[in-house]
Amino acid sequence: MNFNLIYESFLDILKGLGASLEIIILSLFLGLLLSLGIVMMRLTKNIVLNSFSRSFVFVIRGTPLLVQIYFIYYGLAQFTAIRESFIWIVLKEPFWCGVLALTINTSAYTSEIIRSGLNSIIKGQAESAVAFGMNKFQAFKRILLPQAIRQSIPAYSNEIILMIKASSLVSVITIMEMTGIARKIISKTFAPIEVFIAAGIIYLALNYLVTVIFKKIEKKYTISY
């Protein structure tokens, strides 16, 4: 084991932390927005919207992220029609392909988290809120939403950790985030173990940080309960 190499790769890989965080945060944010749309479609009585939302979640959760990344990057680029359309502005850039794939992936999982959060709230609560003179929107915002969020926090913090780990996969489409840099160092040093240990330490630290922060948030919300 070459400890010097671990240290040197650690410093090099750290330079990709910014790129990794950019992709992770952007995808989580966009994914959260998208998931709200998916949940709303799921909760409507419109059969088309409802079944679209169901099949979207089914397909995304049933296939590996790697397939989704390759599909968006190489699969769609195969068609001249797509390459000549306005979508190509986004799909041309590996960075946006990566963000798009991660966004779609996390939105499917997040929508299920939110849905089960909403389902866990006792139905009578909304009715009593209305009986107390709130309108439907007020009841949703003041009574249902805070509870749904609190219910969802542990599962969502788990999803964030999964996304941090998943972001390493975008290195396969030429994005130079942390894992991309690690692969590049390996192609020069031929020492995968040392380099991946260095990368592993950074991911582990990042995930530990997320766990600690969310433990705090969870505590705060439980006290007010």
């Binding site: 941090i164 780990k165 894992t179 991946f196």
Partner: peptide, 14 residues
């Protein structure tokens, strides 16, 4: 903690 905190790709490579 370690296995669940490191990307699967890295675990497999390691």
């Amino acid at each position: 903690t370690v296995v669940r905190g490191i990307p699967e790709l890295l675990i497999i490579y390691l």
